[in-house]
Design a protein around this nucleic acid. Structure first.
Lengths: 265, 265
DNA sequence: TAGAAACGTTGACGCTACGACAAGGTCAAA
DNA sequence: TTTGACCTTGTCGTAGCGTCAACGTTTCTA
């Protein structure tokens, strides 16, 4: 029997047979005078054995180990491990399909599959309307939605709910507009302190708690207890990471908001 | 934001980020004077988007297509296809686990996982007892068990059942011994025709039917209607492929058996 | 009997989605 | 000043073969 017949008999390619020779999974048979490999029935049996094991999901390395240790509980252990692995895969696939099912039912409304439907609803209720800072908030929300784990995500959605009510929404946009107006202002501008107070008042109790609890993720220069105007570079760089050009006055607003929220606790 | 922060924020390695740049999944951000990449929030959002899609099981190529065509039913089609694919995988894994479960309960009795438990039982009932031809039959059975599809496998097991009865077994071994005895005999030996007749008589009706129906898988020189002794090389090479050294007399026995089975129809 | 088609041989590169180096340059703290 | 934690590009490795390339052998056909 030559390599093509053998391969056809067992249902693999000749390349596969040679590959198994190369890895030592299948002994090299005798060669004819012309250099062709000459196989016998036992080779077909051995090859079929290897195939069965691969179809069970064993890696070729594992198969080599099994064939080496030949017979014994070694195989049993490998199979048990394999079964556990397959169980995990099944779970993972099931989870993926669940997410897919949700996406597929919602994808007509929101063709962006990279955010959850719940968050998509929130984002729809919080339009940016041309404000740079509103856009930042939207991006932050989208990011946290994809990055946070499900529990945090649910918590965050809870926190955002108050902002989707109509009059809260109107107030938000007024505040965004006042922030945008400070683009060319000085940090000492009288509007800064007023806006900071209004912003802090606009933050619901629960969200304020969360913000204060996470103050250490805010750069040093924006954090209370600090006094005096923010040094330009540091806080500004952080804010600009958030994608927009930020003026010193705007940076100062956020520093004051942080202080006010902290004091409210 | 530098690459390390970005990666940590989204939960991937820096290598992954650079890989996505290389594949064009993520735009290269501006470089600082020192050559470092400087990221902004939008990059984190984009990266998180890619991650979501990979976690859904899309390949990076598919993601690039989705991002290029951006928005639209394109994505929906990909997701539907993906879901079908995952369903297939689930089925395949389920089938594997079923086979594994069977194997794991039977593996104590038969530590060879490459043959089905049913066939293992048949092989246990058909010991070779030192006969070369019995060994060939065993190997053929093992091979067909791993290569054939389930329906054929079940059919084959049915066909083999008569041979596992005690007195059929005894008769089989007597015949195997007589075959072995012809190792050095001449094709014209008087025992040849007698043994062929006894062998043919030993084959149950159903199996004879199957053999005759598949005569075309038997090499030319062993097939009826032929007369006169088999030409040495062809049939012999085929028999030897079956792993044992075969004498011309033994080859002739099989040729006669084929003729007798055909006549019986 | 010649040529083509269908086999066989070895060797090398390609594919996925990065991980793990190497061999450097940059930057902040000790 | 040195150490350590970053950053840069580039290359090799992974699993299980598919798919050439470049060549020799066998077999069928005109």
């Amino acid at each position: 029997m030559r390599i093509g017949e053998l391969a056809a008999l067992v249902g693999v390619s000749t390349r596969t047979v040679r590959h198994y020779h190369h890895l030592g999974l299948l002994p090299e048979p005798v060669r004819l005078a012309n250099g062709y490999r000459e196989y016998r029935l036992r080779d077909a049996v051995a090859l079929a054995r290897v195939r069965r094991l691969t179809e069970l999901g064993l890696s070729l390395d594992e198969i080599r180990d099994v064939l080496a240790d030949d017979r014994g509980r070694e195989l049993r252990e490998v199979l048990l491990e394999l079964d556990a692995d397959l169980a995990r895969q099944q779970e993972a696939i099931g989870a993926s399909r669940n997410r897919l099912a949700v996406l597929l039912t919602e994808t007509d409304l929101h063709p962006d599959s990279t955010i959850s439907p719940d968050m998509a609803a929130v984002l729809r209720d919080l339009p940016a309307e041309g404000s740079k800072f509103a856009e930042i908030d939207r991006e932050l929300l989208a990011l946290m939605d994809t990055v946070a784990d499900p529990a945090d995500r649910a918590r965050m959605l809870d926190l955002m709910r108050p902002f989707t009510e109509p009059d809260a929404l109107a107030r938000s946009h007024a505040l965004y507009r006042r922030l945008d107006e400070l683009a060319d202002a000085d940090p000492g501008d009288p509007r800064v302190a007023v806006l900071a107070a209004d912003l802090a008042a606009h933050v619901p109790e629960e969200m304020a708690t969360v913000i204060v609890a996470n103050l250490d993720s805010v750069p040093e220069h924006l954090r209370p207890p600090g006094s005096g105007p923010v040094e330009d570079t540091e806080g500004r760089r952080w804010m600009e990471t958030m994608h927009a050009e930020v003026s010193p006055a705007q940076v100062e607003v956020f520093r004051l908001v942080m202080i006010l929220l902290k004091e409210r606790m």
